[in-house]
Design a protein around this nucleic acid. Structure first.
Lengths: 224, 224
DNA sequence: CATTCATTCAACAAAATTATTGAATGAAAG
DNA sequence: CTTTCATTCAATAATTTTGTTGAATGAATG
């Protein structure tokens, strides 16, 4: 093998990973798996894709080494292959934000229309939690809450939130969080709450970033 | 725009960057541009691709925001759009190495056949340079040497090295470096030198990593 | 102001990726 | 041991990406 053949092969091998990252559905899957491992059917539902198609995308990710599988009962759980995959995803997300002004515009426009953009960051949240100044709600699907959540958070899945408004305090500020900065469930929740006379803000990133920074979590139930 | 439409659009935008990174030739271009900006024809020659094709790849990179252009005289220089692009490239390269065992095997096999794998790292190099224990040669094409090189390095382009062996000392250890860990010019040079009775080793990474770590460089000539 | 030459464009062909459908597999549960 | 059901496979169609060729552009040079 001469030098040129070798280089061609080398960059081809390297591009196997970047090719796996080159599809929007697969990026959305990675963003979801940053929460925790999930079975195929759940992932398919979350990203609104047929199961067979989702399975194919998952296999692309698996072949490239980005995700790994584990069978639990009749379900096949897919999860990120390691912390370096999460870190790379964060790096790429940041790069995307900085290179593509469109993304920021999109997100801001969307959020501006719903809530008043009121956000709080991780440090502020921790302090206010400590002082019991706020009421913290986790608006992700309950499956995800059960696998782990921010310490002291109560589960109020966004989809059912409007049916449980009576359980929320009007006198205390409510902080809602979901998966990460690209996740919209917290925005929807905050918009609804403010409309109904509550005082609500969202955590500016989300659960994935929370655990990535070793903040206090609660994992009440190790699922099998 | 509803929530699903919005998410689809968001991940599509994000994938514009990852799509641009998904082609092996474009990765090789980025790796080259990590050295410094170059005109289209030079890039085409280095990656062994027709100029028109190279131009197309460069435009994909430019549209995604990863590289930017600057006209100098009759040449159009393409360069990385910023430090965050370089950092992301390094992150991806590392991820590729860790996920794809094939890559490490390839590199090691190739190197083992040529030299005896003798390498030196940046810190050792700096110390030995200071003590004048070594003779440091830059084996990249002279164009690249002229744009900047490791302080005290002498230019001995790998392609012409065999015609200038008489200018090298046999009594002192020679250290050769080129672009980065994926670049093979230093390996070829080291192999040749050891064959001819010199004592030579390579710097384990290369010039891109050297400047990324703020090590001492020499930029004798600002080209225009 | 005509010429040169690096680069880009445009059009088409070739190759790779993605989506869709329905059937196959294979572990768990009755 | 049969049934159930989550997942994967296989085949094909639709779409996108990549390569190739030759012509067009347009800035610099004489």
């Amino acid at each position: 093998m001469n030098s040129r053949e070798f280089k061609t092969k080398l960059y081809e091998e390297l591009s196997r990973v970047t090719k796996a990252l080159s599809n929007p559905h697969r990026l959305e899957i990675l963003d979801l798996l940053a929460q925790s491992p999930f079975p195929v059917a759940y992932i398919a539902e979350q990203i609104h894709l047929p199961v067979a198609n989702t399975s194919q995308h998952l296999q692309v990710l698996k072949t490239s080494g980005l995700v790994r599988t584990e069978r639990k009962g009749k379900y096949m759980y897919y999860g990120l292959a390691g912390e370096h995959v999460f870190d790379t995803w964060i790096t790429l997300r940041k790069l995307g934000f900085s290179l593509n002004g469109e993304i920021n515009t999109l997100l801001e426009d969307y959020r501006e229309k719903r809530s008043k953009l009121n956000t709080i960051n991780r440090e502020e949240l921790l302090i206010k939690l400590d002082r019991q100044e706020i009421y913290l709600i986790d608006v992700r699907p309950e499956e995800e809450y059960r696998k782990g959540h921010i310490d002291q958070a109560i589960s109020f899945p966004q989809r059912e939130l409007k049916d449980h408004l009576d359980k929320l305090p009007k006198e205390r500020e409510i902080v809602a969080y979901c998966r990460g900065p690209l996740c919209l469930m917290a925005d929807e929740a905050v918009a609804l709450l403010n409309e109904r006379g509550y005082s609500a803000v969202r955590l500016n990133d989300g659960f994935a970033d929370w655990i990535a920074n070793d903040m206090p979590v609660n994992q009440p139930e190790i699922t099998n």
